[in-house]
Design a protein around this nucleic acid. Structure first.
Lengths: 255, 255
DNA sequence: ATCCGCCCTGACGTTGCGTCAGAGTCAAGG
DNA sequence: CCTTGACTCTGACGCAACGTCAGGGCGGAT
């Protein structure tokens, strides 16, 4: 270990070794991500070889787009790390798809604008809006934070085909059942039973993650179709949705 | 124009029409990007059909990754818009390349980790660092803001081969000349003449853009090699750089 | 009259540092 | 010994584009 003649690094050299700035080191220190083991009597940070190893790991994970506040956990728990990497791969692919769409939009627009003599905003807007629509058909984008999106994506892959099969069938039956009693009192026992089934299914689908459920509810609150993800289409009439919402509200109020 | 029975939209409906949130409208109002023409006596925003058209344009440009604060200019000046779109395409491609690298990193790492029985941080770190290096060989990333990067990229394409040829030759000569007088007084006339030539060349290379120059200086201040962009290598000894910096400082002080 | 839904204006939170400002420290040169 | 000059430290504000309360009005329907 040629840790320099002193046996430790000062901020500037340490930062250069890892290709970051001194400010970054201060930041990491403050948020507790990387604290130098010791300080001099005058308060100078003393970084060691071990700190360098950790910093390099941090830099790598940051490069992969992982948020700083998750990194401590990931460095402590290997399985969490692998999990995060799997999720992150999916997130990154999705980001790339979005970028591709944006690039395609620019190119298409530029093309049509060159062929015209002047700029045609209508055409321009239309072209890009079309491509935007494609993006929006990816429903998670609208209702989930990036972190939650990752979770959703991760869950998708945890889903065994059988589980998918079962849930989708149950959902179809449930929707049918609801349609049958749609005129009745949302506070009736029948309706309440349906609401309970509904809640349970949502729980299975979301894996009990409150963040994912929140997004789902948000979606239902202004759209009435289910994501057409695998092959199934859980489209339901607005009344079905309204009814269930009411029934669940009753329950909440009756609590 | 079926602008609703009232002839104008309230925040919520207007927002839904354009696929944004009310908060977004407030934001755009505050920053002056999109102000409703009128307000009711009680302060309610009244959006018109024309506002909708503008908002749609804004949404499109935002989708393409353009910063909000540039959008007003772009909507006013068509040539500026085209220019921005050209630059943005380059920026987006570059972003995509970075994403690709990150994805490749994860996949490579995952692969090698699967073949091992346990996780091997060294290997892992190494793999990703390699890929990171590729990214860093793209020098602009380290010293320019995204906006400035776009400008740099744009300039690259404006560079005629002859201009490139000329500048690179001049630069080589200049470096040689500086090496010859390196022991002398940075305030001497000779040195000052060289500093002037230096400044002029930097001006030609950067197109006079202060932001690009700033990045260049930043780079010089902690590294002493020129980007090996086209084929040329403008590597110079640290002393050369130090000397020129001093000479330029003298001039600044003598002002 | 009242209720529900929508509207308003602050104002703080987020992410990862950049960028001063003001002040102390350390090693070398005069 | 004192002065530089190169580093170091700790705040604290800035940025991009809103999200998310909090606290308090408006408007139309019942």
């Amino acid at each position: 270990m040629k840790t320099n003649t002193k046996g430790w690094y000062r901020a500037h050299e340490f930062a250069q070794l890892a290709g970051v700035t001194v400010r970054t080191l201060h930041h990491y220190d403050r948020i507790g991500l990387l604290k130098p083991g010791t300080r001099t009597s005058s308060g100078y940070r003393q970084y060691t070889e071990r700190d360098l190893a950790r910093l390099e790991q941090i830099v790598v994970l940051k490069f992969l787009g992982l948020p700083l506040k998750e990194i401590p956990d990931l460095l402590r728990d290997e399985s969490a790390l692998f999990d995060a990497l799997r999720r992150q791969r999916i997130v990154l692919s999705e980001k790339r798809r979005r970028l591709d769409r944006a690039i395609a939009a620019i190119e298409k627009a530029a093309q049509s604008l060159r062929s015209q003599h002047g700029p045609d905003w209508n055409l321009f807007t239309q072209i890009i809006k079309e491509i935007e629509m494609q993006a929006n058909s990816d429903w998670t984008k609208e209702y989930y934070s990036e972190a939650a999106q990752a979770k959703v994506e991760a869950r998708k892959h945890l889903w065994s085909p059988e589980l998918q099969e079962r849930v989708s069938k149950e959902w179809a039956r449930l929707i049918k059942d609801v349609e049958a009693v749609i005129g009745e009192d949302p506070a009736s026992e029948k309706a309440q039973a349906l609401a309970a089934r509904w809640k349970k299914l949502v729980g299975e689908f979301t894996g009990g993650d409150p963040e994912i459920q929140k997004g789902l509810n948000k979606m239902w609150s202004d759209r009435a179709n289910w994501p057409q993800e695998p092959q199934q289409n859980f489209q339901m009439k607005p009344e079905v949705q309204t009814f269930i919402m009411k029934a669940m509200d009753c329950k909440g109020a009756a609590r």
